[in-house]
């Protein structure tokens, strides 16, 4: 457990020192969301109806921005190999990295989302569910993304390839994230959708680090 917090703190320190990642991700999120009213037209009804989808799709893309660097720096300077030699399981390393990634990208997105929901005229009933779906969904995105990030280590055009690998796997999270918000806005129960999102997170929590660690081992061979 102390090893885990050490990994997380190390990554957070690095992220804070560079400082730009979280700001860039949020800026991308805000800018892209703001583009939609220009593309769709500013009618309140249209924006209100599409707001959940716009926010979730954009959050999905934003959380992928910094994903390709999740293991890359450590892979290139050799510290990943050193970490693999320590008795710490690689799975633990992956979990630590994912937590740090979520804290630096997922959490800022969740903070920004309600503000953007106001801009998109989202119905007031949807706000709480929006935050809740993102709390349950964005960790799953980071977990699935970690598999992709580990797989493309050493590949040509890793960044573009990563999005090709990861986006199809993000579809269920997107569907149930938007579904829950839409239900809440229409005054329907959204508990089932939230439970499914939670279930996906619970399933990804052990499976994704395991798969990502397997991919890392192959990258280090």
């Amino acid at each position: 457990m102390t090893r885990l917090s050490e990994i997380i703190r190390r990554d957070l320190r690095l992220a804070l020192r560079q400082g730009s990642d979280s700001i860039m991700v949020v800026t991308f999120f805000v800018l892209t969301v703001v583009l939609f009213p220009f593309g769709l037209g500013p009618e309140t009804n249209l924006l209100e109806r599409t707001s959940a989808g716009i926010l979730w799709v954009t959050a999905l893309l934003a959380s992928m921005l910094s994903l390709d660097r999740l293991f890359l720096a450590d892979y290139e300077d050799g510290s990943l190999e050193l970490l693999a030699l320590t008795p710490t399981a690689l799975e633990l390393l992956v979990i630590g990295k994912v937590v740090a990634h979520w804290l630096t990208t997922g959490l800022p997105l969740i903070v920004a989302a309600p503000v953007l929901a106001v801009l998109l005229q989202m119905n007031g009933d949807g706000f709480a569910t929006l935050v809740l779906t993102m709390l349950l969904g964005t960790p799953t995105l980071s977990l699935i993304g970690a598999i992709g990030a580990a797989l493309v280590l050493g590949a040509r055009r890793g960044g573009v390839l990563l999005s090709l690998l990861v986006l199809p796997l993000y579809v269920p999270v997107l569907i149930f994230g938007v579904g829950a918000i839409d239900a809440a806005v229409q005054d329907l129960p959204s508990k089932a959708q939230l439970l499914v999102l939670g279930g996906m997170l619970l399933a990804a929590l052990p499976l994704a680090p395991w798969a990502a660690a397997a991919a890392l081992r192959q990258a280090l061979e």
Binding site: I147, L151, G154, A155, R156, R157, L161, L165, Q218, A219
Partner: peptide, 19 residues
């Protein structure tokens, strides 16, 4: 795309197997 993205084909085969 992943299977063909590596200079070393065995690495591509292993990565794509995980995928």
């Amino acid at each position: 795309a992943l299977a063909n993205a590596f200079d070393d084909p065995t690495r591509g085969a292993k990565a794509s197997a995980v995928l």
